[in-house]
Design a binder for these strands. Structure first.
Lengths: 217, 217
DNA sequence: GTCTATACGTCGATAGAC
DNA sequence: GTCTATCGACGTATAGAC
């Protein structure tokens, strides 16, 4: 009789896969991609090294999945922070809330945030970074667009501003998240304050005089 | 008689090395890292593949050197654009000039700029990216610090603002530089205008009300 | 899942410099 | 005569096609 996967074997297989992803996630969160050697992942998941390759074609694919899940979680959390504020909340407050949530979460889970944001890693994961930057930008872009729509924010291209903000926030976090740095709580608060101020300046302030446009033409 | 390298053989060796680096640079500028296969580099440099490995321990090391040189060139060009303005020039104009020079150069050599800024690549090169982001930030930080010093710009942490600006500019360029995009001249001008406006808003506008700091505390 | 094409890195041989 | 830079084919891994 031919072998056919049953629900039971499927479930076992899925469970093993999840344990592997979970183990890899934990190791990345603990010590970055460097700690996520396939042998270490397998050991933590309670499987043999070869088993990892029965579920993922390569280490890069495994790391990509870990990255994708963790990043999506952060995007969702950022969006939730923005949406948590009631319907009448000013756009500026929403933007500040998103920036603050993102930053505080990153500083709380520094090692994981560093892995997601800046740690040099396989090009396959790098490609995912480009995608998720856009996802973050979409969160801000929607809020900015709403604010422009109802006149709370000055006229601007919401997608552009949002993209620039995401770049600014990310780059500002690279230093503080770097494994060689050890920011205090005061440092963290100062960073959040600066980031919020930066975001609001670049989003809410009035357009500059037309000579900016002349200069660029 | 024992063999000892002479000036002549040294010069030949250096020349070969330079040809290899130059060939790799050209290929990266033409089609990104993907085009820079070792065999292709060797062919363009007029040497055998094995020769490349007599000068570089690995492809990653070769690409790292290419990246480092090209990036340093851009940093220098950006700094030159900032410094080209006379001693009395307002800090805001300097910042705008730096942002514009960087952006226009990137848009002119899109493929190379994409490789330097965003193309997924070996982690060794990625690590260099982190370094050069700081170098770009230093260019802006100095100008901002001068502006704050003499009261042209509102009080702020120059290093922070500069870092955020570099992130913002870089991220805003990712989309337009992407090989799948084909911006027109009008697009390029609009992008430059938006970037300059963004940089000036976030650098020159007055500090926000103290409740921003309350919010972050 | 297999198979092929591509690409990195190595190695023994060779030519030429000292 | 000794040493080294160079060559270019080959081993091996991987990725993409079917």
């Amino acid at each position: 009789m031919a072998y056919r996967p049953t629900q039971r074997t499927e479930a076992r297989r899925t469970a093993t896969r999840e344990r592997i992803v979970g183990a890899a996630h934990d190791l990345v969160a603990r010590g970055g991609y460097r700690e996520a050697a396939v042998a270490a992942v397998a050991a933590r998941a309670g499987v043999a090294t070869g088993t990892v390759y029965r579920h993922f074609p390569s280490k890069a694919e495994l790391l990509t999945e870990v990255f994708r899940r963790a990043s999506q979680h952060e995007v969702d959390a950022t969006r939730a922070a923005v949406d948590a504020l009631g319907p009448g909340t000013p756009a500026a407050d929403r933007i500040a809330a998103g920036a603050e949530a993102f930053t505080r979460r990153a500083l709380r889970g520094r090692r994981l945030a560093w892995a997601l944001l800046a740690e040099p890693v396989d090009p396959a994961v790098e490609a995912e970074r480009l995608q998720f930057r856009r996802a973050y930008a979409d969160v801000f872009a929607r809020t900015i667009a709403d604010g422009v729509e109802d006149g709370q924010l000055p006229p601007q291209d919401p997608a552009f501003t949002a993209t620039a903000l995401v770049g600014a926030i990310g780059e500002a976090l690279v230093g503080p998240l770097s494994p060689t740095t050890h920011p205090t709580d005061a440092d963290a608060n100062a960073l959040v304050a600066r980031l919020i101020a930066f975001c609001l300046r670049s989003t809410t302030d009035q357009e500059l005089s037309p000579d900016v446009h002349r200069r660029a033409a």
